[in-house]
Write a protein that binds this DNA or RNA. Structure first.
Length: 903
RNA sequence: GGAGGCGUAGCUCAGCCGGUUAGAGCGUUCGGUUCACAUCCGAAAGGUCGAGGGUUCGAGUCCCCCCGUCUCCACCA
């Protein structure tokens, strides 16, 4: 074992990670195949946008997935983590438009084909960037199966689904009011609208009656829409306005005669009770208009510019028009007042522009029939959310779902497979462009110019990536996938849509579990955002601390569904932990004999501490495996860390040193064996989280090792669970802690070695004897003495009384009687408190009759233990007190002698 | 308007199905250069688990209500 030569004092991630990752790639460990001999375990990646740059959200999401997939791989599943990217129609199109703007070009300056050429070129150049960044994270994706939402196969899936839904009557085209972004110049779906509270105004405007009998006052937050008003509505129950219904008003600035109508939609007591109705530019007004058969007058174009219906305001931007209209109303004396008003304004998720409700012809998916079975599937537990509370969010949305607007006035994306006959106008939805119109035989057919919402293709991701609509072996084997890992922010956008698509197209949910995580915030708890400039680049963190440290910091100390703050102190801790295990390994290797051979280790040579740590590690394996299976990664990682640092490094290694350094010791080989075994297993348990350093250590530790990532996940061996050993070592550790505590309190420097006297039952003699080396080392003792009776201990000893032993440390003049008294008094108080608590419990009739026997026995045992401790501690305290008196009187005598002399 | 999260040590957070003396990291105080590691080791201080009520033999954990805080959904011109 000369590996130690490769191991400097501190672990250097930069020197290892790329090399290790390349090796994994070369060996093909990430690749999954259809293997009937193994059970599959599948995750499909949430495909990042090709415009994406790795951010902390990706880092968290992918670290979770990689940790799960590595765990399952080691458990022996045929694991597929299927990666890929999303074409992100609107985001990418915006990038291309921006880039063209730099050349002084507008989108309209090029043809659709030229534009798409640019887009594909852009994709080729930048689309792989995020993939390489995912690799830096250590992601063990099957890169041979990488997919892109606009690949040929996936596009075919999109067309297939569109056609099927259309044929089932679940996709229709309709002229409706939709959310529209004037900047992106496209329709957007309801969930792409972000409502923001903004400071606005309430403008109160008088609409004069046509008969000259005064006027009716309305209030609006968007005065420019006045141009499209076709009525004013009041509530039919409104006494104030009852007589006005049916009368006509003159629309200010426009002069159009519009009726006063009655509609329930108007809320009594809000505003003036009279509402202007603009069907073309407000969704509620659109519905009112439909009920009353009102005209729909569009006054703006798709860019938010007032059109010819706006008369003299034609050509003005909507906000410019707003100002001018207010000014003109004021001039005409029709503006009554202006009030400041806070209200919610819909903005475009992509660009932040105020959304404009806009009437246009769009394609919709009829949602109710799709939602129902998807709701049922989750109700029936076919898919479970972790944590479960997110199911409520899913249900709430799905139960109140509106039809989904899927057409976009964009070029980059999947083009809608609908064709229009130039002659008769028939709409033909088909997988391939038909040769001629089936109705009129006309051969001029135009394909719909629009593309589909990006999420339409993402919704098919779990099966389109596996080859659907072909019935591939992959699809059969890997579908449904096991777990989907994603943030709560895209449950509606993506998770819900995958579920109803999977249920509809495959007849089976796309995944069994949905593991939801929260956001990674900055140190102050703010959302990381470009505008705040508070984002932390994961690649920078990797550069400074290593990938494993980053991954560790993202997983540890947080639980599913909760947001977390990104703390540099946490990354530092993780880096330190890496270094700790690195050095533990160095220590182990340093002390191994050359060519050490464990094949003839005799279990009979195992000492108490060997049995103890093997027992604890086997408990750990059970717990961690259980936590991993329940996706409690944070808990699992904490447990592994505590075990490695506290149990293995701080106790086991320290306890074992006397044996290891003594070439004559007969259990030396056993100890090397245990060191090796425990360390290797620990690295395996840690590997899903810290893949690189564990691989590096594994390679150093095991000669000719292939790779930790394909090694077998440790299995617990119940025969190694040893309660007696745990109890014994518990006593040793408690003893050492007590000794250290006393020494610190009494300010005894480490250089001063003391004698330690154990008064303990004979059953522990052998144990103390066996542990002498460790006790001496760790308790800074010169010698360890066992005694039958405490009378053998000198009076001027500090004492620790613990269950199973009384420990005396003769300190002579070093002893501080005051402190010792205080310490023992506090000890006694604690014991009394516990006695009261336990005693009370056992005196409780209800506890005795209803609590499980196991607990009652435990409490009884405790009571006996504390009673014993109280007796011993009280006795000891009395002795120390009398010692104090003695000292005091001695001091007084001395004083006396002195003063006599002076006289 | 509806739904949900969070409130546990100075800070950031764990704490599953209710059951040892409620934990960790950072920070703080004190002490440590013997050959794995100062990216370290040892010792310690620090919490009536937001308030109140209830269920229970037993509540940080379950229920109700209130306070504070954050988020999501809906959206009233």
């Amino acid at each position: 074992m000369k590996s130690i030569e490769n191991m400097p004092k501190t672990y250097d991630p930069a020197g290892s990670e790329d090399r290790i990752y390349q090796n994994w790639l070369d060996k093909g460990y990430f690749h999954a195949v259809v293997n009937p001999d193994k059970k599959p375990f599948t995750i499909v990646i949430p495909p990042p946008n090709i415009t994406g740059q790795l951010h902390m959200g990706h880092a968290l999401d992918n670290t979770l997935q990689d940790s799960i997939i590595r765990f399952k791989r080691m458990q022996g599943y045929e694991t597929l983590w299927l990666p890929g990217t999303d074409h992100a129609s609107i985001a990418t199109e915006a990038k291309i438009v921006d880039k063209m703007a730099q050349e002084g070009l507008k989108k309209e300056d090029v043809t659709r084909e030229q534009f798409l050429e640019r887009a594909w070129a852009w994709r080729k150049e930048y689309g792989g960037r995020i993939v390489n960044q995912l690799k830096k994270l250590g992601s063990s994706c099957d890169w041979e199966r990488e997919r892109f939402t606009m690949d040929e196969g996936l596009s075919k899936a999109v067309t297939e689904v569109f056609v099927r839904l259309y044929e089932k009557g679940l996709i229709y085209k309709g002229e409706r009011i939709t959310n529209w972004c004037p900047r992106c110049n496209t329709s957007i779906s309801d969930i792409e609208v972000i409502y923001e509270e903004q400071d606005g105004h309430f403008w109160y405007i008088n609409y004069p009656f046509a008969d000259g009998s005064g006027s009716l006052m309305i209030a609006t937050t968007r005065p420019e829409t006045l141009l499209g008003d076709v009525a004013v509505a009041v509530n039919p129950e409104d006494e104030k306005y009852k007589d006005l219904v049916g009368k006509e008003l003159i629309l200010p600035l426009v002069g159009r005669r519009i009726p006063v109508i009655a509609d329930d939609y108007v809320e009594l007591g809000f505003g003036t009770g009279a509402v202007k109705i603009t069907p073309a530019h407000d969704p509620n007004d659109f519905n009112v208009g439909a009920r009353h058969n009102l005209e729909v007058i569009q006054i703006m174009d798709s860019r938010g510019v007032i059109n010819e219906n706006g008369g003299k305001y034609c050509g003005m931007d909507r906000f410019e028009a707003r100002k001018q209209i207010v000014k003109d109303l004021e001039a005409e004396g029709l503006l009554v007042k202006v009030e400041p008003y806070k209200h919610n304004v819909g903005t475009c998720q992509r660009c932040g522009t105020t959304v404009e409700p806009f009437v246009s012809s769009q394609w919709y998916v009829k949602m109710k029939p799709l939602a129902e079975p998807a709701i049922k599937a989750v109700r029936d537990g076919k898919t479970r959310f972790i944590p479960q509370r997110f199911e409520n969010i899913y249900f709430n949305w799905m139960e109140n779902i509106q039809d989904w607007c899927i057409s976009r006035q964009l070029w980059w994306g999947h083009r809608i497979p609908a064709y229009y006959c130039a002659d008769c106008g028939k709409i033909i939805v088909a997988r391939e462009k038909p040769a001629k119109c089936p109705d009129c035989g006309c051969e001029t057919l135009e394909q719909d110019p629009d593309t589909l919402d990006t999420w339409f293709s993402s919704a098919l991701w779990p099966f389109s990536t596996l080859g659907w609509p072909e019935n591939t072996p992959e699809l059969k084997y890997f579908y449904p996938t096991n777990v989907l890992v994603t943030g709560y922010d895209i449950i509606f956008f993506w998770v819900a849509r995958m579920i109803f698509s999977g249920v509809e197209q495959m007849g089976e949910v796309p995944f069994r579990h949905v593991l939801i995580h929260g956001l990674v915030r900055d140190e102050q708890g703010r959302k990381m955002s470009k505008s705040l400039g508070n984002g932390i680049d994961p690649l920078e963190v990797i550069k400074d601390y290593g990938t494993d440290a980053l991954r560790y910091s993202l997983i540890s100390g947080n639980s599913p569904g909760n947001d977390q703050r990104f703390l540099t102190s946490k990354v530092e801790f993780a880096r330190n932990f890496g270094n700790k295990i690195w050095n533990a390994t160095r220590f182990v290797l340093m002390n191994f004999d050359d060519g050490v051979d464990f094949s003839n280790v005799d279990r009979a040579d195992f000492t108490a501490e060997d049995k103890w740590i093997l027992s604890l590690q086997n408990r750990l394996i059970k717990e961690v495996t259980d936590n991993m299976e329940r996706y409690e990664l944070g808990v699992a990682l904490t447990k592994v860390t505590d075990f490695i640092w506290d149990v293995f490094c701080d106790w086991y290694i320290e306890l074992v040193k006397p044996r290891l350094f003594d070439p004559e010791n007969k259990s030396r080989l056993a100890c090397m064996y245990v060191l090796n075994r425990v360390l290797v297993n620990s690295m395996k348990l840690l590997h899903p989280f810290m893949p690189f350093i564990t691989e590096e250590i594994y390679q150093n530790l095991i000669k000719d090792a292939e790779s930790i990532m394909i090694s077998k996940w440790p299995e617990a061996d119940d025969s190694l669970i040893d309660e007696a050993a745990e109890k014994e070592l518990g006593l040793v550790i408690e003893s050492i802690k007590s000794i250290r505590n006393i020494r610190t309190q009494m300010n005894v420097p480490n250089s001063v070695k003391t004698t330690v006297i154990f008064v303990t039952g004979s059953e522990n003699f052998a144990l103390i004897d066996e542990s002498k080396g460790a006790l001496k080392r760790l308790g800074f003792a010169q010698e360890i003495v066992t005694a039958e009776d405490e009378s053998e201990a000198p009076g001027d000893s500090a004492t620790a009384i613990i269950p199973g032993a009384k420990i005396f440390i003769p300190l002579r003049e070093l002893i501080d009687v005051e402190k010792e008294t205080a310490r023992l008094t506090k000890e006694l108080e604690n014991i009394e408190y516990e006695l009261k608590r336990v005693g009370g419990k056992l005196a409780n009739e209800g506890f005795i009759s209803k609590a499980p026997q196991r607990l009652i026995d435990q409490e009884r045992e405790k009571l006996a233990k504390y009673e014993e401790l109280r007796k011993s501690t009280a006795e000891r305290l009395e002795k120390v007190k009398s010692m104090k008196e003695l000292r005091k009187s001695t001091a007084e005598r001395l004083e006396k002698v002195k003063s006599m002399k002076n006289n």
